[in-house]
Design a protein around this nucleic acid. Structure first.
Lengths: 225, 225
DNA sequence: GCTCCGGCAATTGTTGACAATCCTGTGGGT
DNA sequence: ACCCACAGGATTGTCAACAATTGCCGGAGC
C-alpha cells in the first residue's frame, strides 16, 4: 500500500493563534501552571501542538490581560498576584460591578427577574445543604446573569479581565468556612434590589457584598502570614 | 574610495518593539491616524523605521488596549468609538475615578494639598481669562495628580487605558462653549473634599463631575446628528 | 573557601522568505 | 445594464533558520 494520506500534517501548526491563546488562558486559570512558573516557548509549542510564532502571540495577549509577565530576554512567567494587589483589583471590581448592578436594575425584564429568583432559591438551598461547590457555581452564575442583564460591554470586559487575575484568590475564598452563610443575605439583597428596579439600592448592595469579599481577602492574608 | 562605514545599518530595525508601540500609540492619540483608517504593516515599517515583526507586536498590543481593531487577514484599523461607546467608557471611568478620588482623600499629604490648591487657583484664572487650552491642560493635570495621590496602580491603568480610547471625544468636549464655566465649580468641589480628607464627599464630587461629562457627550451627539 | 572569569547550553529575539487570503478591476455571458 | 467568474496585485499569516542574550558550571587565582 502506498503511503496513505493519513492526517497529512507536515509539521504544520494544528492550532491557530486565537485557539492557542484561549487554551493557554484556560490552562493558567485552571491552575495547571502555578504563579511564578516559567512558560518556556519551546515547551508550549509541544504542549499545544503549534509553532513558536503562535505561542509568542498568545503570550503577548495574555501579558496584556495581566495573566502573565514578560521580561525581555528572560521569557514569560505566570503572574504572581499579592494579596495587596488582589485587594486593589477587587476594589476596582467593586465599583464597576456596582455600576453594572445599577444598570441591571434599570433594564431588568420579567423573565430575567424570574431567573434571578430561581438563583436565589437554589442558593439558599445550597447553603442549607452545605454544598459549597454548588453555591460557588451559583455565585458565578448570579454575577454573570447580572452582567448579562446590564448589557454593558465595556464594564463587562473589565470585570472579566480583573476576575481572571485573581482566580486563585477567589478559590481560596470559597474554602473559608462560614463564607456562604455570610454572603447569602448579601446576594439576596442584590437580587431584591434589581427585581425592584432600584438602581441605587442595587449598586449599594453589590458594593457592600464585594466590600465584604475584600475584608475576607485581607483576613486570609493575616492567617497565611 | 572604498565603501565607508557611513552609519552602517543593513536594513536593520532601528527601533525596538516597545518604542514602536509607544510611538504608534502617541501618533494615534495625536490624531495622525483617523478612526477607521487602515494601518498597513508595510507602510508602518517605513514610517517607523523598523521591521514587520515589531510592527506586528505593536499592533497586537494596541489592539489589547482597545486603540485599534484587528481582523484576521484584513489587517488593523484605528478603532471607531461611537458616542454610545464613549458614554459606556466614561461611565466606567466615572466609578473608577470615584474610587480613586475617595482613596486620594484618605492619603493626601500637606504638600499635595498645597499643589491641589495651586491648580484650583490656576483653573479659576484660566476660566476668567477664557484660556480654554490652558484650562484643558490643568484639567488633565488635576486628574493626574489625584491619581498620583491615590496611588492605586490597578485603577490607574484602567483609567489610562479608557482615556486613550476616547481622546477624540474629549477633544470635542473641550471645544463646547460654556463647558469650563460648568466644570470649574465641580473641580473645586473635588479639590475641597480631598483637602478635607473626606472620601465619601470626594467620590460623590468626582462622580457628579464625570456624570456631567457624560451629559455633555450625549448633548454633542444630538447636535452632531 | 571565595571570587572572578570564560565558555557552554538553553532560551529568546529577529529576519527574510514563502504561503494563504482578500480586494479590485476586467471581461464574458445573460 | 447587470451579474458572475476569475486573474492579478496587494496585504497579511506563518514558518524555519539564524543571531543575540542570559544564566550556569567549572576552573584559575587569591
Amino acid at each position: 500500500m502506498p503511503p496513505e494520506h493519513t492526517e497529512r500534517r507536515p509539521a504544520r501548526a494544528a492550532n491557530t493563534a486565537a485557539q492557542v491563546r484561549d487554551t493557554l488562558r484556560e490552562a493558567i486559570l485552571r491552575g495547571e501552571y502555578l504563579p511564578g512558573e516559567r512558560l518556556v516557548e519551546a515547551q508550549l509549542c509541544a504542549r499545544l501542538d503549534t509553532s513558536r510564532f503562535n505561542v509568542r502571540a498568545a503570550l503577548q495577549d495574555l501579558s496584556g490581560e495581566g495573566l502573565i509577565e514578560m521580561q525581555r530576554n528572560r521569557g514569560a512567567q505566570v503572574r504572581k498576584v499579592s494579596t495587596a494587589e488582589a485587594v486593589e483589583i477587587t476594589e476596582v471590581r467593586m465599583v464597576v460591578e456596582g455600576l453594572i448592578a445599577a444598570r441591571a436594575a434599570e433594564r431588568v425584564g420579567p423573565d430575567q427577574a424570574t431567573e434571578l429568583d430561581e438563583i436565589a432559591v437554589l442558593m439558599r438551598r445550597a447553603v442549607d445543604a452545605g454544598e459549597h461547590r454548588r453555591y460557588s457555581d451559583l455565585n458565578q452564575r448570579l454575577h454573570a446573569l447580572v452582567r448579562q442583564i446590564a448589557g454593558h460591554g465595556t464594564a463587562d470586559r473589565i470585570v472579566e479581565t480583573l476576575r481572571g487575575q485573581i482566580v486563585r484568590h477567589q478559590y481560596m475564598l470559597s474554602l473559608v468556612p462560614g463564607r456562604p452563610e455570610r454572603s447569602l443575605p448579601q446576594h439576596e439583597r442584590i437580587i431584591a434590589a434589581i427585581r425592584d428596579r432600584d438602581p441605587k439600592a442595587a449598586e449599594d448592595a453589590m458594593r457592600e457584598h464585594i466590600a465584604s469579599v475584600i475584608e475576607a481577602l485581607r483576613a486570609i492574608d493575616y492567617l497565611g502570614t
